[in-house]
Simulated scan of single mutants.
Amino acid sequence: MSTPRVVEAAFIKSAQSIADSLPEDMSEVVFLGRSNVGKSSTLNSLTQRKNLAKSSATPGKTQLINFFETRYLYNEESYPVRFVDLPGFGYAKVSKSLKEVWQKNLVEFIQHRVSIRLFIHLRDARHPHAKIDDDVEAYISEFIRPDQKYLTVFTKIDKLNQKERAKLKKDFPGSITLSNLKKNGHDRVHQMILETIFGVEDGTKSKSDSVEENEEKE
């Protein structure tokens, strides 16, 4: 059985809100997380493109919703998916008015964007119990649809020792730990994307576009 891999990835458009976003004509994976969690690095690493997502030297500078069209190849079958990079949350150095507009636009997007199938919440492994991350997860759980899934992915796992990693897995069962440096955990993220959106599991493709039962893998 082959390993899922992204064979095409391209930036398509930036948008300020759901109103000027792309048409909802493709299943989407949304990446969200704090401003310094490493979203750009993770997107680049997952797609094996060095500069697909531009990282800023100033956390919180990117305030737009960025769309990337990607294509997976798995067991000689092609699977098109759109990746959506949301602005990082929790950064204080934006003006109050901009922050209010940004939050309103983001809330509207994540609540009403029909094409979102998977939320990938990137959390810093060094600060696993950050309140802002807990609040975001609790908030999205209030309106997440049956055809959507929420996946917690911990970045910067290289910064933890073995004991800390074991505690992290115990505290967050079902989560995925990611090392962009060593490329660990990427295959599990790819598999979860294909399972959630296409029903691909153990090398088989379901005819249904949704997954009724999706067991989380340890």
Rank of each mutant, 00 (worst) to 15 (best):
I157A: 03
K167V: 12
G90N: 06
N51R: 06
F119W: 07
F198C: 03
Q63I: 14
K217N: 06
G90K: 08
T204E: 12
E142R: 09
I197D: 02
E218A: 00
Q111Y: 09
K93S: 14
F89Y: 15
E218D: 11
K104L: 13
S17W: 06
R145Q: 01
I116T: 09
T204C: 06
P4N: 04
L64D: 02
E216L: 14
T196N: 11
R34D: 09
L43Y: 05
F119L: 00
Y79E: 10
N51C: 04
S56V: 07
V114E: 10
R113F: 13
D133C: 01
D209I: 11
H112A: 06
K99H: 03
S27G: 07
L46K: 05
K170Y: 15
S41D: 08
E137V: 05
E212M: 11
P4K: 00
Y150I: 03
E213M: 06
V114A: 05
S208R: 12
F83L: 14
R113W: 08
S35K: 09
Y139L: 04
Y150H: 12
Y91I: 10
F89I: 02
K99S: 12
P23C: 05
I176S: 02
V136F: 15
R113V: 05
S206A: 13
H190F: 07
L22H: 09
G33V: 08
K159L: 06
N105F: 13
N75C: 13
L106P: 01
E212G: 09
T47M: 02
L118H: 01
D20S: 09
E216S: 10
F31W: 11
S141D: 15
R145F: 01
